[in-house]
Design a protein around this nucleic acid. Structure first.
Lengths: 207, 207, 207, 207
DNA sequence: TATGAATGAGTCTTCATTCAT
DNA sequence: GATGAATGAAGACTCATTCAT
């Protein structure tokens, strides 16, 4: 492999390594994934991998950081900037399939569920920085809609879970069962149905 | 350890080992779990464990078989025997918290998500015997309710996913985040809300 | 298994166990042979085996003692009692195929060659009690034939090796290659040739 | 240990490992030999051994290949290129002691006899590539000598066995009893006697 | 920086031996 | 005496990590 001399070249190599790491962790799980395979997948040697990450665990932590955070912004954006509840739900269910099918988030989710029990600090941090933030954004969106008289709900925190559940679970489904060779779930229709139901269930009819 | 001479005593020991195995697989994941720890947890020696299961993988497979199947009957029971859709939903959301809090299903789910990628045959079998059966039971219940004019829905297969999503995801949540020391999610209220929403969203008003 | 109460019954069981042991040691070698398999082959339990032999090594030692010694008498008999060299050779080459094909000596020989390196005391004892005695008997026979003017030879000890070599090696061949599925070596013809050659080579023509 | 970077250095290390393996297999037998001891004997770590041979069995197979084949050429050379039967025998019995005392063939022979029962494929291959080839070379030599009218024999295949028996058995003797501290067998004299006897037994007197 | 050979701790699995029944 | 469940020491093999080149 050519040498990465500039900072940029090194950052790029880090990204490639993180991608390779996700692939292997997703495929085999943290414990069963081999550093050599990760390096290979990134066209690097084992030794070089250690120039970029000082241990397997450090690589795992960096992976979670790097992939989870970016996408969250877009969701918070949707939740906070939409003019109406209906609009927010519409945008959410349009955005969700992209997130599931085009990003690595589902794979990351699978990895975290499978392996984080062994890394309490990673788990807590993921919980704080990703999960709670996500639930919080949706809950906030729901609160504001309620305040605007658009919907009628109980605890917004619980409601947020009901709103997100089909989306999150579909992502996981995708990650776990995707390679099984059958007709994939029609996420667009599924989430469209979900949005409609939510709106019908908690939306207040305007005459 | 006292010796298990009768077939019954051996079956009991097998059950204890399966429990210990679930605990360790849940805590560490398949690859990182140690056979010695599983044996210890069951107050047995490493060697004795191999009298009951011929390999780590065989133990894993036996675990999934033994724990997943039984509970399913109760859900199929609820889905098929309830006189009305409303009744079925009510029973489902009352039963769900018990299943999540009192059984090992959530832990098993976490283990399967985390480790089955490495065992395609186990994954397929779990998919066929558990997941599809569960989705099928709910879809069937929905179909019949639609035929009875109680609800108005699109594809029952997709609707089944929407019905189950909060329950399944809550189970997973419990498994992944449970030991975090904070106020637990109020599953009874959450599922009650969910059932109400579903009924309001797809139920047909009778005058 | 029924209990062996009398001394005779116990001796018989010991013999059965020794036979089973030879089979397993021959098939797998000392280290790879399993006590459980030996016991099974004798229709006994592992535990019972230890009632008769206190360890694997003790079983091995007993095996060598029990099987090697008896047959030797017959050869010494032939060597010492034959009226003439020619007669002795004739008897030897008639007896040898039986010994190879009908006794367990070849198997024992294979076991000793393969495993005795680890048991110096067994090796030495086998060397002293069996090998040297056998070579000595033949050498003595040769010496006497020389003294009687029947043959003309150099060192009888070396000559004894030349006389025995084809027989011993054929035994080993049988043990090592016997299960290979092809036309077996015609031992009778082979040894007949051997005897003729020896007689022609060292016998003194009587006019 | 210094690192073997070049292909040559690696080949050399492989040779060293094969030597170490033969020593240990010879001493303890295949099953009882420890990979760690083999590695140690070669001044390498356990792990490094597996860089060169992927398993104990692979090491065993490589060992047999590497040591048995080369020496055979010389014997075939002797058998095929000698101008007369007498000359061939002379060369054979001069060469044989060297092969026994200076090469590792006797040790290899002992290992194969002791352990090949467990490796049928190795046994067959050894049989085909070494044993049969060797017997065939001698038989061919005998056939040609007979055709030239130098000797009078029955089946050359059987005669080949008689010719080789003392040599092979002496090799084995060396391997099995060599470390016993006594006057070694005088192989030169023994084989000289053997050659003389054979020539006298089957050679045709020319007037 | 990059490589991959070397290390050795760690884990699954086997099996001689013991001992409760 | 007989059984076979239980034990735990031992050994093959793996792989994260180091480091000479």
């Amino acid at each position: 492999m050519k040498r990465a001399r500039t900072e940029d070249a090194k950052d790029e190599r880090r990204q490639i390594l993180l991608g390779a790491a996700l692939d292997e962790f997703f495929l085999k799980g943290f414990a069963a994934a081999r550093m050599a395979d990760i390096a290979n997948r990134a066209n690097l040697s084992k030794g070089a991998l250690y120039l970029y990450f000082e241990s397997k665990e450090a690589l795992f932590e960096a992976l979670i950081q790097s992939l989870a955070v970016p996408r969250l912004d877009q969701i918070e954006q949707i939740a906070s900037s939409s003019p109406s509840f209906r609009e927010a739900m519409d945008r959410l269910v349009v955005f969700a399939p992209l997130m599931i099918r085009q990003t690595k988030l589902p794979r990351l989710m699978k990895v975290i569920i499978g392996d984080s029990q062994s890394f309490p600090n990673i788990l807590r941090q993921y919980r704080d920085q990703i999960v709670d933030r996500l639930l919080g954004a949706i809950a906030m969106m729901l609160s504001r809609a309620r305040d605007r008289g658009e919907i009628e709900i109980g605890d917004p925190g619980l409601m947020a879970r009901l709103v997100l559940a089909p989306i999150v679970l579909s992502g996981l489904w995708e990650a776990v069962f995707a390679n099984e060779d059958e007709t994939p779930v029609d996420l667009d229709t599924l989430f469209r149905m979900h949005a409609d139901h939510v709106i019908r269930a908690i939306g207040i009819e305007e005459n």
